[in-house]
Amino acid sequence: MMILQVKGVSKRFGGLQALSNVTVDVPPGQILGLIGPNGAGKTTLFNVINGVYKPEEGEVIFKGKNVVGKKPYRLAHMGLSRTHQIVRPLKDLTVRENVMVGACFGSQNLSLGKAARIADEVLEFVRLRERANQLAGSLNVGQKKRLEMARSLAARPNLLLLDEVLAGLNPTEIAQMVEIVKEIRTRNTTIIMIEHVMHAVMKVSDQMLVLDFGKPIAYGTPSEIANNPKVIEAYLGDSSLADQFNAELAAKSAATAE
């Protein structure tokens, strides 16, 4: 059984068709990479999946239930977690308290005591343990990204939506974060990740979905996607990304050739 099925989802904002007829199945334990140029509708798809937006058409089936129209907190209780592209730390709470919110109110519905224990474990895992008592507002960008990750992990989700967790990180931090993502997968959490850092997303994804102007234009394994002319064309529309994409493809093929 699929953990998540998106069936013919369309979402409009005024005159803008943000998503049109998007369909994708995600089996449990998989990492789905979600890529596409800026404005392709990736984050909108996340917002539809976790109930922030209600689509005009289509169904979102999470763990066998149609969740269209359900509020975000309901989905959180059902075992869905996400991170935000622009980090949203609860600034005046400590790092530990931030993570405890995730643990307390997520699918496990833990008590404060247990949540504190989980928070410390998760903070250890994302290497923020020593900052647990700091106010979240005082962290730097990389740390805030890891906090965002820790918060969603503490909920022990079945499905984790990662929205550009690598953006704005330096190469060392990217490597760390990729390790964290891989580690999460070994623990049987399904992941959908939006990512622009191509080599990284290609390395960790099992399957990839490419959106362009709200339409799915390609679906397949990373190597299929890398060689798909439609995908390359979509990125060529956006010249900087196309360069990045080609450079990364070259780097990747060089790496695989070794």
């Binding site: 509020k71 975000p72 949203r88 609860l90 005046d92 709470l93 308290e97 919110v101 109110f105 909920a155």
Partner: peptide
């Protein structure tokens, strides 16, 4: 725990909703 949820709402109501606070 309820209070923690309130403070999460104070800091960012939408984010806390997504984390499961009602």
């Amino acid at each position: 725990k309820f209070g923690l949820g309130l403070m999460a709402i104070r800091e960012d109501e939408d984010a806390s909703d997504i984390m499961g606070v009602i």
